[in-house]
Amino acid sequence: MAAENNLHFKLGLIYSDQPAERLQHLYDEGRIRPLANAPVIERKLFERSHTVAMMGVEPLQELLRDGYDVILAGRASDTALFAALPHLNGADPGLTWHMAKTIECGAACAIPPDANGLLVTLRDDHFDVTTLADGSRLTPRSVAAHTLYENADPFHIAEPSGTLDTTHATYEAADERTVRVRGSRYIEADGYTNKLEGAELVGYQTVIVGGVRDKVVIERLPELLPMAKKYFDAKILDVFDGRVDPDTIDINYRLYGTGTVLAGTEPTPLQPQELGVLITVTAPDQGTAHAISTFVAHASSHLPIPEYDGLVSTLAYPYSPPEMDRGPLYRFTLNHVATGVTPTELFRTTTEEV
């Protein structure tokens, strides 16, 4: 892009990937702390998973101080990207972090929400946030509501260096497109932390999408599907002549319309007239997942219904063939923080003249 447009600039690159050896060292020193509902981890996890640390403003500010024109950063706090420069220039930290939180998703807090940007004017005792798209507007309510987005607590939002406290923030309409915000505070943390996020390869997946509108079938599925899974275990041993262990294969049915989205915590009983059925087959490799899904799809479309005589169709598939290879499947492995670190310790920076 620079060559095509004859651009010349100083480029800074900040990498957030974490070597396994560094993570194991932090683990051995007891400096990796779980966040709420984090999974239990073991030392070997770091060898098989890919982990990044989430940077705050400090690695970005180092390059800004040195006059770099373009910065490409790895994993960073969304708000850090907007807070780095005003924070560096001495703006009020509470207003700076609240401003950054407000605009991190563009015009997501506008009415109607859209993918355009917002303009913020940051002053000593308040900031004004304004929509840029014609036909859109901001209200005190829409701006205040955005502090709840992706946060369990709308008043306390954690960052690597501290916590944004919006408990006493006020929101007022300056005009139809502008909201004025005051009263935000930033509470510095006792120690600096960087969030760690990791993922590992689980296997490869093939998916099947189907549906059913037969009430008899819908009522029978909860007892038929466990029976089907037992059949599939035997079928896997037979088809692959013992080369594939059924325990390494996951065959999962999600019945949309029976509370699947809430995963068993549906507050009211549902009596669906029709169900959407998502079948996932996960295996160590894509070929095995696809092969197993072919007989899973066939058998699932002809489950034995005691109320009916003979062969009946139970699931309808919108595609033929119904098996769709989804590729590699990953799962999150970390929801932790690294403690006792300096703000730039976990990040590697390189620079170049473009």
Rank of each mutant, 00 (worst) to 15 (best):
Phe295His: 08
Phe295Asn: 04
Phe295Asp: 11
Phe295Met: 08
Val296Tyr: 06
Val296Ile: 12
Val296Glu: 13
Ala297Trp: 07
Ala297Asp: 10
Ala297Thr: 14
His298Gly: 12
Ala299Arg: 14
Ser300Gln: 03
Ser301Met: 15
His302Ser: 10
His302Pro: 10
His302Asn: 12
Leu303Tyr: 00
Leu303Gly: 01
Leu303Phe: 01
Pro304Phe: 08
Pro304His: 03
Pro304Val: 07
Ile305Tyr: 00
Pro306Cys: 04
Pro306Ile: 04
Pro306Asp: 02
Glu307His: 00
Glu307Gln: 11
Glu307Tyr: 03
Glu307Trp: 02
Tyr308Ser: 05
Tyr308Trp: 05
Gly310Val: 03
Leu311Tyr: 09
Ser313Asn: 14
Ser313Phe: 07
Thr314Ala: 00
Thr314Leu: 01
Thr314Asp: 07
Thr314Pro: 03
Leu315Met: 10
Leu315Ser: 00
Leu315Gly: 01
Leu315Glu: 09
Ala316Arg: 10
Ala316Lys: 13
Ala316Val: 11
Ala316Gln: 12
Tyr317Arg: 09
Tyr317Cys: 02
Tyr317Val: 10
Tyr317Asp: 07
Pro318Asn: 04
Pro318Glu: 13
Pro318Leu: 01
Pro318Lys: 06
Tyr319Gln: 14
Ser320Arg: 15
Ser320Asn: 15
Pro321Ser: 07
Pro322Val: 10
Pro322Ser: 09
Glu323Arg: 05
Glu323Asp: 14
Met324Ser: 11
Met324His: 14
Met324Thr: 15
Met324Glu: 15
Asp325Ile: 12
Asp325Gly: 12
Asp325Ser: 12
Arg326Pro: 04
Arg326His: 15
Arg326Cys: 13
Arg326Lys: 14
Gly327Val: 11
Gly327Lys: 08
Gly327Thr: 05
Pro328Thr: 06
Pro328Val: 07
Pro328His: 14
Pro328Ala: 10
Leu329Glu: 06
Leu329Tyr: 05
Leu329Gln: 08
Leu329Asp: 10
Leu329Ala: 08
Tyr330Cys: 13
Tyr330Pro: 12
Arg331Ile: 15
Arg331Cys: 12
Phe332Lys: 03
Thr333Ile: 10
Thr333Cys: 03
Leu334Ser: 02
Leu334Lys: 02
Asn335Met: 11
Asn335Asp: 12
His336Pro: 05
Val337Thr: 15
Val337Ile: 11
Val337Arg: 04
Val337Leu: 09
Val337Glu: 14
Ala338Asn: 04
Ala338Phe: 09
Thr339Asn: 06
Thr339Val: 13
Thr339Ser: 08
Gly340Gln: 05
Val341Asn: 00
Val341Thr: 01
Val341Phe: 07
Thr344Trp: 09
Thr344Leu: 13
Thr344Ile: 05
Thr344Pro: 00
Glu345Gln: 04
Glu345Gly: 01
Glu345Leu: 00
Leu346Arg: 01
Leu346Phe: 09
Phe347Glu: 02
Phe347Ala: 02
Arg348Ala: 03
Arg348Asp: 11
Arg348Asn: 11
Arg348Phe: 08
Arg348Glu: 13
Thr349Tyr: 04
Thr349Gln: 05
Thr350Glu: 14
Thr350Val: 12
Thr350Phe: 11
Thr350Leu: 14
